[in-house]
Design a binder for these strands. Structure first.
Length: 565
DNA sequence: TCTGGGGTCCTAGGACCC
DNA sequence: TCTGGGGTCCTAGGACCC
């Protein structure tokens, strides 16, 4: 272990909720809960204001609604979170080439490897500068932990939350850890925690005193040894920048259990296609197909099948998934289905055949079908989800507060505006369309990588501070200037409903969605249409590096790439 | 209170091979 | 002929993380 606190862990504060508050001025200082809005949704992130009521991530949404009935409940907008995450990761890469993202809102940085820090003093400086830069570029806050190892840096950032920095001085680690509960250590979850408690071990000190043999006996070799080392503040894991994906999977939890076996089969086919799209999108193929089934009683089982070689052929993967389903009893109903592929490679067996064969077999019909389904025509079903970005031909940009009974309520405000007003429309109002997120900070020198705002949003000198930003609100300034005449759509003009907007009190931003209203129409799962629910983040970064070859094919190292046609 | 989605790693048993 | 040990692969399940 190094003797200077030069491993940095960054953790953005209540990331999803903080992004929503930055985007929606009426929600600042309010309880905001981001997550699945369906009957089986769970909380992805709760703002600190919502945590006061006891709401926390992974909690069932129904429970959150009971605890904080007046909070704003919003669907996650992953596209925006990813764009902001990319801005943050870019700042980290300015500190060091060794950046290891753990999720959209978390990463390790090896400051020493970047030459950015070599002792306590320089590490603290780098950490504080990073926090300031993140605030300037994104308008958000992040907490920083600095220590001599990954484990300790992560514990430090946890202690620093929210909006702080904690540095653990080398030499003090063991004393600091000793009184902490075992659950503080990464890798100790509910099951291990219980296990240890039954053995009379509740603190890190007791863990350290138990001895390695005892821990191995209790928890198994790998876990026991790892925990014993961590309890003694020993952690030599390096910061690793590029990690290759090992599996790709998709799954859906249904609002209502599926009993119809035929329907179960159809869903599995859909999931197989979706999985293939993800696989291909990452330029990968895989050998092992996995089917996951969660039954009505939450019991979960998996079935897998390994092919002779890797594939990304939708027909092959669908058939494998169907075969696997044959071996599963689904009587009683199914609440979740999933399809995954592991044993990944960055080439397919077909590629190898193609090398040998002069003529490539062309385009199976499946491919076209998959492509077509990839683009979910959003106009097909006009469903408005709480939190979603929209634009109105007359009123400009806003977001959906709620919908139901054929109406949709929109609050018109932007990241740089004052808290906006609420108006209600028919759900099929032609003047209303979904829109791209607006950038949180209007600064052209750090544009988000997702589709940005109309040019008019970026005109002028960007504000540098939150105060300055607040002073320069341009109410609806960009509403009229996007695009040309084609922007005025529909012939019927604006069709505002009779209740046009009971403009709400500015203080009432909390009631953003009425429980249950956004999920009208049976078991249609509206909020997952675009990206699916998620908690704080989803990993799945897939590097463009060539995946290693399956051992059986590659002789020794497996790093030498197969040349592609 | 009733439990998401996307991952990683580990364990354990059986098959198979040497 | 009987007994065996080690290594790798496959499958299933479980814990954990965000």
């Amino acid at each position: 272990m190094r003797n200077a606190p030069t491993i940095l862990h960054l953790d953005m504060d209540a990331f999803f909720a903080a992004v929503e508050q930055a985007s929606k001025p009426s929600l600042r200082g309010k309880a905001v809960v981001v997550g699945g809005l369906g009957p089986r949704g769970v909380v992805a992130t709760a703002s600190y204001e919502a945590r006061v009521f006891g709401v926390h991530s992974a909690m069932p949404m129904a429970q959150a609604r009971r605890l904080a009935p007046n909070a704003a409940y919003l669907v996650p907008r992953f596209t925006l979170y990813r764009a902001i995450s990319e801005q943050v990761m870019a700042l980290l890469r300015e500190l060091s080439p060794l950046v290891e993202p753990l999720s959209l809102d978390e990463a390790f940085v090896d400051l020493e490897a970047g030459g950015t820090a070599w002792d306590e003093e320089s590490a603290r400086r780098a950490g504080e500068k990073l926090r300031a830069d993140i605030r300037a570029v994104t308008g958000l806050t992040g907490s920083v932990g600095l220590a001599a190892s990954k484990m300790l840096a992560k514990i430090a950032s946890e202690q620093a939350k929210p909006d702080g920095l904690v540095l653990i001085e080398p030499g003090t680690e063991r004393d600091m850890l000793a009184p902490m509960p075992v659950r503080t250590l990464p890798g100790v979850g509910p099951a291990t925690g219980d296990h240890l408690r039954r053995a009379g071990i509740t603190t890190v000190r007791e863990l350290a005193e138990a001895g390695e043999d005892e821990l191995v006996r209790l928890l198994g070799k790998a876990h026991g040894q790892a925990l014993y080392a961590m309890a003694h503040a020993r952690d030599e894991r390096p910061v690793v920048a590029e990690r290759e994906a090992k599996s790709v999977s998709v799954e859906d939890t249904y609002d209502v259990d599926i009993h119809d076996r035929l329907r179960v089969g159809l869903e599995v086919q859909r999931l197989a296609d979706r999985c293939v799209r993800r696989l291909r999108g990452a330029g990968l193929s895989g050998r092992t197909i996995v089917l996951k089934v969660r039954r009505y009683d939450f019991s979960t089982l998996t079935r897998s099948e390994t092919l002779r070689g890797p594939t990304d052929d939708p027909a092959v993967i669908r058939e494998a998934a169907a075969r696997l389903l044959d071996s599963v009893d689904t009587t009683g109903g199914v609440r979740l289905l999933g399809v995954g592929v592991s044993g990944l490679a960055d080439y397919t067996q077909e590629d190898l055949f193609a090398q040998a064969m002069p003529v490539r077999v062309v385009e199976e019909p499946e491919e076209a079908a998959v492509e077509a389904e990839a683009e979910q025509p959003e106009a097909a079903e006009r469903q408005w989800r709480a939190g979603q970005d929209v634009r109105h031909a007359e009123y400009g940009p806003g977001w959906v507060q709620g919908s139901g009974l054929g109406r949709v309520t929109v609050r018109f405000e932007t990241p740089q505006s004052e808290p906006g007003r609420v108006r209600t429309f028919f759900v099929d109002d032609p003047a209303l369309s979904s829109a791209e997120p607006l950038p949180l900070v209007a600064d052209p020198s750090h544009p988000p990588t997702c589709p940005g705002p109309p040019n008019s949003a970026r005109r002028g000198v960007p504000p540098r501070t939150p105060e300055e930003r607040r002073d320069r609100e341009e109410p609806r300034g960009r509403a009229e200037s996007r695009g040309g005449p084609d922007e005025v759509r529909g012939s019927g003009g604006v069709r505002v409903t009779e209740e046009v907007c009971a403009t709400e009190e500015a203080g009432d931003g909390g009631r953003a969605s009425v429980p249950g209203e956004v999920r009208a129409r049976g078991d249609t799962r509206i909020w997952e249409r675009e990206e699916g629910p998620g908690r704080e983040e989803s990993r799945g970064q897939v590097s463009s590096e060539p995946a290693s070859l399956p051992k059986s094919w590659s002789g020794s190292g497996g790093e030498e790439a197969v040349s592609r046609p």
